[in-house]
Simulated assay, not measured.
Amino acid sequence: MNIGTAIYTWLNGREVGEDRFGNRYYEHKSEPAPGYRRKRWVVYKGIVEASKVPAEWHAWLHYTAEAPLDTEQSFEWQKEHLPNLTGTRYAYRPPGHVLEGGKRDRATGDYEAWTPN
């Protein structure tokens, strides 16, 4: 967090909550002007990366929900939230990627190479 955000948050922010990653969520203390919505923002823990915001807080930040969604209710098909891992050592690399050895399986019989006439 830079000094400007810290001062703005200290003067104008009311903390609403914190997610399991340590990100803190705020909304403006004062009532908005008629026809406007109360400003909401997040102060990230660590690196500022928008993909670190889990779905339940994303809905609140974008005024889809009045309160953060219930994290207790989950389904067996749901996966744990992960931030964008592109550019890290945990990023997905398909078979044949240079950093995965550069070798891939041969194409099967369902592939027909295109040749110009």
Results as ranks from 00 to 15, higher is better:
residue 83 P to M: 04
residue 96 G to W: 06
residue 104 R to E: 04
residue 19 D to I: 08
residue 18 E to Y: 11
residue 50 A to L: 12
residue 56 E to T: 02
residue 109 G to Q: 01
residue 21 F to C: 05
residue 10 W to A: 11
residue 102 G to P: 08
residue 12 N to Y: 10
residue 116 P to H: 10
residue 1 M to C: 07
residue 20 R to P: 04
residue 102 G to I: 10
residue 84 N to E: 00
residue 24 R to P: 04
residue 21 F to Q: 01
residue 117 N to L: 12
residue 52 K to Y: 03
residue 6 A to Q: 15
residue 84 N to I: 00
residue 60 W to K: 13
residue 117 N to M: 13
residue 29 K to V: 00
residue 46 G to N: 11
residue 38 R to W: 02
residue 14 R to Q: 12
residue 9 T to R: 14
residue 37 R to I: 12
residue 60 W to H: 02
residue 106 R to I: 00
residue 69 L to P: 03
residue 44 Y to M: 13
residue 90 Y to C: 02
residue 101 G to A: 06
residue 4 G to L: 09
residue 3 I to Y: 07
residue 66 E to V: 01
residue 77 W to P: 00
residue 108 T to N: 08
residue 78 Q to S: 09
residue 3 I to S: 11
residue 54 P to N: 06
residue 18 E to R: 15
residue 54 P to H: 07
residue 29 K to C: 00
residue 45 K to H: 09
residue 58 H to A: 03
residue 13 G to P: 08
residue 40 R to N: 12
residue 111 Y to R: 04
residue 42 V to Q: 13
residue 20 R to V: 08
residue 46 G to D: 08
residue 81 H to T: 09
residue 86 T to F: 09
residue 2 N to M: 10
residue 67 A to V: 01
residue 6 A to W: 15
residue 102 G to A: 12
residue 111 Y to A: 07
residue 113 A to S: 14
residue 104 R to C: 00
residue 52 K to M: 08
residue 42 V to E: 10
residue 72 E to P: 02
residue 11 L to P: 06
